[in-house]
Structure formats: structure tokens, C-alpha cells
Design a protein around this nucleic acid. Structure first.
Length: 233
DNA sequence: GACACACTGACCATTACTTCA
DNA sequence: CGTGAAGTAATGGTCAGTGTG
């Protein structure tokens, strides 16, 4: 590296030569390590120099005050872009974190929907059995009406449900009864129930889950001034 | 006090040059 | 040795703040 001497840092007329309309600084030299070190340490304490201090620094380092001012200008610009890069990587990390969380919740939701569907299928079974075995169940019409839901296992190990309901006539499951039952457990036809598993709905997870998610204040609206979701719009 | 003008300093985008792989 | 990329000193344009007539 070329050493930058005090002579090199002389007046601008000696550093630049006006050949064309646009000035070309033919003898541009980098500042010495010593000068850079000194300027860096000053920049750490204050990113802006007062005019008086600038003159003093220029004198100490053998530079033109204009050169010191320009160095601070460029330094501020470099510092700003570096800061921007850092902010970007923080945002990127937070986004990746959020995306992973979203994927995991999506899977969890899918599993729950499948589970719900299976339960729904199980609920439908007793209805079919009730239709083909009406006569048999008629003999037991007074059994099991305790206002409770019971689960029974048949000889083949299949589960079957029955719901005792005190507000209805006791006894066998009528067509109406079973219709009511399946209505209770038919999420695809129940907007309220379906809203719980709607892909666009986050209500499946507790708000605490989201609150506990540490975004390092990324989406703190008091900082941004606009909702975080606008970030992607 | 209101206005126009000149001066100054800061910021920004860009250029010109140096250094290095 | 030539070359492209990265780093950086410097330039030029613009704008805001301030002083002055």
C-alpha cells in the first residue's frame, strides 16, 4: 500500500487535475493507516464533526478540512448501509423462524382435521346400525338413557357411540336422533365448526402460542408504524 | 416584518481511482 | 500481465438553514 504523506494531502489543486469538464483526481491516494485509525476512533465517539473540531482534526492529520468532512460523509454512508445489511439479516432470520412455525402449525392442523373426520365417521356408524337393527334395539329401549354418551365395543372390536338425551324421548335412536347426532359432528356443513379448521383461520392455536413467539420486537407496531402483514403486500 | 439572494453544510448518487485475488 | 470485483476518496446535484441587504 502506498503511504499517504502530508504533501500528498495538499490543496485540492495539487490532488486533482482538470482535464475535461469533469474533474479527475489523478493522484488520489488512500489515507494512511494512522489517519484512518484516528478518524475511525473519532467517528466512534461522534458521527458528525463540529466545524471547529474538523479544522483541528484536519490540522492534526495533515489533511484538508474538506477531506475530513468528506471522509465523515462517506463513513456515515458506509455505516448506514452496513446497518441496513444487519437489519436485513435480522429480518430474514425472523421470517425463517415464522415460516417454520407456520409450517408446523399447518401440519398440526391437518392432523387434527383428519382426526376429526375419523371421529365423524365413527359417529355415522351407529346410525346405520340403528336402521338395520331397529327391532333388536326396540327391546332395549329403556336401557342406557342416563343423559350420557357411552362408547361400546362390538364383537368385532368396532367402537360404537350412543348418546342419552334427557330432553328427547327415551329409547332407541330414531332417524331424527341420529340426524341430530350427525349434524353435531359434521364440520363440513357447520360453518361455526368449520371456522375452527378453516385454513385461513389461526384460531386453532391459542393466542398464547403467538404471544410467546419471540420475534425480537420485529413486529412491534409502535416501531414500524404499520401492521407487520403490510410488509409482504 | 417580508422578501430575495448568497453562502454553507449535509446528504445522496455517482464517478474515478486503487488494491487485490 | 490482464481483468473484474470490492473498497474508497472525491465530485456534482439538491435541499435546508442562516445571514444580509
Amino acid at each position: 500500500m502506498l503511504e499517504y504523506t502530508a504533501e500528498m494531502a495538499g490543496p485540492f489543486s495539487s490532488v486533482t487535475t482538470t482535464t475535461t469538464k469533469k474533474k479527475k483526481n489523478k493522484n488520489k491516494r488512500r489515507f494512511s493507516d494512522e489517519q484512518i485509525k484516528s478518524l475511525e476512533s473519532m467517528f466512534e465517539s461522534e458521527t458528525r464533526l463540529e466545524p471547529r473540531k474538523k479544522l483541528q482534526v484536519a490540522k492534526e492529520l495533515g489533511l484538508q478540512p474538506r477531506q475530513v468532512a468528506i471522509w465523515f460523509q462517506n463513513k456515515r454512508a458506509r455505516w448506514k448501509s452496513k446497518q441496513l445489511e444487519q437489519d436485513y439479516s435480522i429480518l430474514q432470520a425472523n421470517y425463517d423462524n415464522l415460516a417454520a412455525k407456520y409450517e408446523s402449525l399447518k401440519k398440526e392442523k391437518q392432523a387434527l382435521v383428519i382426526q376429526l373426520q375419523k371421529l365423524n365417521d365413527l359417529i355415522k356408524k351407529p346410525k346405520e346400525e340403528a336402521q338395520c337393527c331397529r327391532q333388536v334395539t326396540a327391546t332395549n329401549r329403556n336401557d342406557g338413557d342416563k343423559g350420557e354418551t357411552t362408547v361400546k365395543s362390538d364383537s368385532e372390536g368396532q367402537l360404537s357411540f350412543s348418546m342419552g338425551r334427557s330432553e328427547h324421548a327415551p329409547g332407541v335412536l330414531s332417524d331424527d336422533d341420529s340426524a341430530i347426532k350427525t349434524d353435531y359432528f359434521r364440520p363440513e356443513e357447520d360453518p361455526n365448526l368449520m371456522s375452527m379448521v378453516d385454513p385461513g383461520d389461526d384460531s386453532l392455536t391459542s393466542p398464547e402460542d403467538w404471544r410467546s413467539f419471540d420475534s425480537n420486537g420485529l413486529f412491534d407496531q409502535s416501531n414500524c408504524g404499520y401492521p407487520w402483514w403490510d410488509f409482504w403486500s
